[in-house]
Amino acid sequence: MQTSPASVTPQEALDRRSGQRHALVLLIGKVRHAGREAACLVHDISAGGMKVRFTEPHRVDDRLEIEVRGLPPVRGTIRWVNGCKGGVEFDAPQDLARVFRLRDDDGHVMRTPRFAMEASGTLRLLERRWAVDILDISPGGAKLEGETGAEIGQAGSITLPDLPTPVFGVVCWTQDKKLGFRFSSPLTLDMLARVLGCC
């Protein structure tokens, strides 16, 4: 059964322009638009574009930049919007093989984009607690700063802005007053959006 041109949806039109898409990729990415950064969830992706769930409102023809694991920041245009979801057409085709690789050319693990922050939290390791500054965050962890005396491998929890319960994890690196705290379970898009103050 063929679909008539009048019944082609914006999603189908973008799919046709972009070639075959990879369904249910579900990667958290970073959107830059009008001088502001926000989190997003990439539902599927092709060399020519992607279907995205936004955490802030957007409109058709908005110009933006999206960053996801494995790709450099990519410029594109929103071609359709349906509620919080939208279709983005890239300015230039992208190499999708990089998105699905576990490591880059130098052997480093591909990382989800990080979001700079200026916020405070409470780090708890065993029975001790410290006030810390949250310098940046990703779904998988956060960079913290403070006089903690933390050691690599110590398990504990961190309070994050606007989340009702602490997030559990482990100290994965330390350097001077800074440390990396890897979450036991990745933050969902909704949790990350709340921490970042997205609507």
Rank of each mutant, 00 (worst) to 15 (best):
P57T: 08
L64S: 07
E37T: 08
V81F: 01
A39C: 14
D91N: 10
G76H: 00
F90E: 06
V68S: 09
L27T: 07
M50S: 12
R69E: 13
T77M: 08
M50Y: 05
I78F: 03
G83R: 03
C40L: 13
A92D: 15
L41Q: 09
V68L: 15
H33V: 02
H33C: 10
G49L: 11
V68H: 07
C84M: 15
V60W: 04
A38T: 10
V81H: 10
P73I: 04
E56G: 04
R69I: 01
V60L: 08
D61P: 00
I66M: 04
R69V: 02
I28D: 07
A92T: 13
P57N: 12
H43D: 03
E37G: 03
D62R: 01
V52Q: 08
A92S: 14
V52K: 07
L41T: 04
H58Q: 10
S46Y: 07
E37Y: 13
V52F: 03
G76D: 02
N82H: 14
F54M: 05
I28S: 14
A47I: 02
C84A: 15
P73S: 14
R32L: 05
I28W: 00
L26F: 12
G86Q: 02
E37L: 11
D61V: 03
V60E: 12
G87Q: 07
V60A: 14
C84E: 15
H58N: 08
L26P: 10
E65S: 15
T55S: 09
C40E: 06
C40Q: 05
V52P: 06
H43E: 13
V52H: 06
V88L: 15
V52W: 02
H43R: 14
V52R: 06
R36C: 11
N82Y: 14
V88P: 00
R75V: 07
L64Q: 03
E67Q: 14
A47T: 05
V42A: 05
R36G: 04
G49C: 09
V42S: 02
R79F: 07
G49I: 00
P72N: 11
V81G: 10
N82C: 12
P57F: 06
A38M: 05
T55Q: 07
L27H: 11
E56W: 07
P72S: 14
L64K: 00
A38Q: 09
G76C: 02
V42K: 01
V31W: 00
D44R: 12
G86A: 14
V42N: 03
K30A: 10
H58G: 06
L26N: 14
D44E: 15
L41K: 06
G35T: 07
K85P: 00
I45L: 12
I66Y: 00
G29L: 07
D44I: 03
A34P: 01
P72L: 09
H33N: 05
A39D: 10
D91S: 13
P72A: 12
V60C: 13
K30M: 08
N82D: 15
K30E: 08
L26H: 10
V68D: 00
C40F: 04
V60N: 09
V60M: 12
R53N: 09
G35I: 04
W80Y: 15
H58T: 10
H58L: 07
H58D: 05
V88R: 05
P73Q: 11
N82L: 15
